[in-house]
């Protein structure tokens, strides 16, 4: 009897472990994806009540399951939106409202983590997070199954986010540039993920994987002006000291040359 129970428990444990590993595989967006590149992203710093907290992309990735395209895009968009509205000030979590047009789990998890509105999150305060599609549909059912259905026609228009300051009503629209995505990416995605208009070939799947990696790495490493509409490329900072040194050398040398020529002429 005891050995039968032990056998059942062992089977249950092994099955659970197998199920967990399968679940992990199911959660990973891109099985076999290249490891993350070297990147340096500053954390999103917010006030959760009296406590100042730093939210890193790694934390968001852990909450979601991995660092994916949509998660990293959402993270960068939040950083940009906050810097545009609050400047150097640290926003209060409950003063942040994010309206996203992107119906994907990665972006959902990121925004929910930052606003504290996600499941299982214990925070002192909570911001607001809404998902409103480009056609105006307000998404209330944010389950993975429903989001997958809604994400069928995702294109560049979906990569727009409004980051708002609730207390003042100020909003900043963060829109991703078309150039952040390789040509034909969204059509390829439809083919690979949904088989529309037809199932993808193995080459197309490989291409999609490679494109996915490129976009993820871009969102992790590229500067804001390359990713988002309306952000100007910053001007190169002038090396004033170097320039001043050279200019002084130039002036002194010219002065010496002229005085040398003048003294030679007066000698003659």
């Amino acid at each position: 009897m005891k050995s039968k129970i032990a056998f059942k428990v062992a089977t249950l444990v092994i099955m659970s472990v197998l199920a967990l590993s399968l679940a992990t595989a199911a959660d990973a967006h891109m099985p076999g994806a290249k490891p993350l590149p070297d990147f340096e992203l500053t954390p999103v710093v917010i006030n959760d009540g009296e406590t100042e907290i730093e939210i890193t992309i790694e934390e968001v990735g852990k909450y979601h399951g991995d660092i994916c395209v949509c998660g990293s895009c959402a993270f960068r968009a939040t950083q940009l939106g906050i810097s545009q509205i609050w400047g150097d000030e640290i926003p209060a979590r409950d003063d942040i409202r994010i309206i996203s047009r992107l119906p994907t789990p990665g972006s959902r998890d990121c925004f929910q983590y930052i606003t504290g509105t996600g499941q299982g999150l214990e925070t002192n305060t909570k911001g607001e997070y809404k998902m409103i599609l480009p056609d105006g549909t307000v998404v209330t059912n944010m389950t993975k199954k429903n989001l997958k259905k809604l994400s069928k026609n995702v294109g560049i228009d979906y990569f727009k986010f409004d980051v708002c300051r609730i207390s003042t009503g100020e909003c900043f629209e963060v829109a991703v540039k078309e150039q952040a995505f390789p040509d034909g990416y969204f059509e390829l995605r439809k083919k690979v993920k949904f088989g529309i208009p037809e199932n993808a070939t193995s080459e197309e799947k490989a291409l999609f994987k490679s494109d996915w990696e490129i976009i993820r790495d871009r969102f992790l490493t590229s500067p804001d002006w390359q990713l988002f509409v309306g952000v100007e490329e910053p001007e190169e900072e002038n090396d004033v000291v170097g320039g001043a040194i050279f200019f002084s050398i130039l002036v002194i040398a010219s002065f010496l040359l002229v005085s040398l020529m003048y003294s030679k002429r007066s000698q003659e």
Partner: peptide, 12 residues
Amino acid sequence: LSGFLGTYAPPY
């Protein structure tokens, strides 16, 4: 002034 001097900055 900074722009003026910056133009003379390296590299050369």
